Simulated scan of single mutants.
Amino acid sequence: MPKAARFSRYGGPEVLTVEEVPLPEPGRGQVRVAVAAAGVNAIDWKIRSGFFAGSDAPDEPQGTGFDLAGTVDAVGEGVRSLRPGTAVFGKAATGAVATHALADADGLVAKPDWLSFPLAAGLPVVAETAYRTLRDLGLRAGHTLLIHAVSGGVGLVAAQLALSRGATVIGTASRGHHDFLTELGVRPVEYGEGLLERVRGVTDSVDLVLDAAGRDVLGLSVELTGDPDRVLTIADGNAGAHGVRFSGGGPDAAPLPEVFAEVLPMLESGALRLPIQQTFPLERIADAHRLSEDGHGRGKIVIEVG
């Protein structure tokens, strides 16, 4: 029987269970993917915890996860671009942490042979978010970009994309990540009290700020850039109080083929690195969420399913 990680009430990681479920059938424009691996992102546990909820409990059991990699095993009406047996990765239309998941065909990209399923599963959300936020910030060669939480998935991809485009990148991270970040070409600074002075100690000016941390750094970021339009957050719901833009994707999301036209060649050549922090089996999805919520990791957490 197919299995899926689901939750029927909001709360901590303990509300997640792995259950037998009916085999999902693809609708028009969709495919069914036999999932090999699924990525874990902060948005997953925020949804599970009820952060965005307007009620005490979901109306019905909910799946979890958006990122997946696997093999197409059924196609819905109108799908011409993908066939059963094609290895793909991208965003799921239903919970990705499952043995089988549905996805819109245009939300998937063919997986090259050199790319592993676990790494492919860790890419879609972080790569699209990094690409989109740099686009919306208007990053150009010669800019100095400050990234808060640069050692996380979004931060790492955004930093390496920005560096490849000729920008200087400063990033906040805990001390244990500094050597790795320096290898990439990032100028790391430790977050916490005194951050403003530490940033000013490594650069004369900051042109743009990407906040991937959500740790009350927006006021400081506006002070560094001198203009709230030069600051963008994906993690702080208090953005409006600082006049800062909040980017959550949705209709503004970048098309995955466009994103990976830039990202995949960099990955293949080694110009972009995205470490996998830890992998878990499907049955340990709750532990994966705990690790993600704990923060301070480097790179991606991945669920290996098949």
Rank of each mutant, 00 (worst) to 15 (best):
R215T: 09
R215W: 07
R215V: 10
R215P: 00
R215M: 07
R215G: 01
R215S: 09
D216W: 14
D216M: 13
D216K: 15
D216Q: 12
D216G: 08
V217Y: 03
V217E: 05
L218T: 08
L218I: 09
L218H: 08
L218K: 00
L218P: 00
L218V: 02
L218D: 04
L218N: 01
G219N: 06
G219V: 06
G219D: 00
G219E: 03
G219R: 01
G219H: 00
L220C: 04
L220K: 05
L220E: 04
L220Q: 03
L220P: 00
S221K: 00
S221I: 02
S221T: 06
S221D: 06
V222S: 05
V222A: 06
V222Y: 02
V222D: 00
V222Q: 01
E223R: 06
E223I: 05
E223N: 01
E223G: 01
E223M: 00
E223T: 08
E223W: 00
E223Q: 09
E223F: 03
E223V: 02
E223D: 09
L224F: 05
L224W: 06
L224C: 06
T225W: 07
T225C: 00
T225K: 08
T225L: 05
T225D: 09
G226P: 01
G226Y: 03
G226L: 04
G226E: 03
D227P: 06
D227S: 06
D227E: 14
D227C: 05
D227M: 10
P228V: 07
P228D: 07
P228H: 05
D229T: 15
D229V: 09
R230C: 05
R230D: 02
R230G: 03
V231M: 04
V231C: 02
L232Y: 07
L232F: 10
T233I: 07
I234P: 08
I234L: 15
I234F: 09
I234E: 10
I234Q: 07
I234C: 08
A235Q: 10
A235W: 06
A235V: 14
A235R: 10
A235T: 11
D236A: 11
D236C: 12
D236Y: 13
G237E: 13
G237F: 15
G237D: 14
G237Q: 13
G237C: 04
G237P: 09
G237A: 14
N238M: 13
N238L: 13
N238A: 15
N238F: 15
N238T: 14
N238D: 12
N238Q: 12
N238E: 15
A239K: 03
A239S: 08
A239D: 09
A239N: 04
A239T: 11
A239H: 10
G240L: 13
G240W: 15
G240E: 15
G240V: 15
G240Q: 14
G240I: 15
G240R: 13
A241F: 14
A241V: 14
A241I: 11
A241Q: 13
H242N: 04
H242C: 06
H242W: 11
H242I: 09
H242L: 06
H242Q: 12
G243D: 11
G243A: 11
G243R: 11
G243P: 08
V244S: 01
V244D: 02
V244A: 01
V244T: 02
R245E: 15
R245H: 13
R245A: 15
R245D: 11
R245M: 12
R245C: 12
F246K: 04
F246A: 13
F246T: 02
F246Q: 12
S247G: 08
S247Y: 13
S247D: 15
S247T: 12
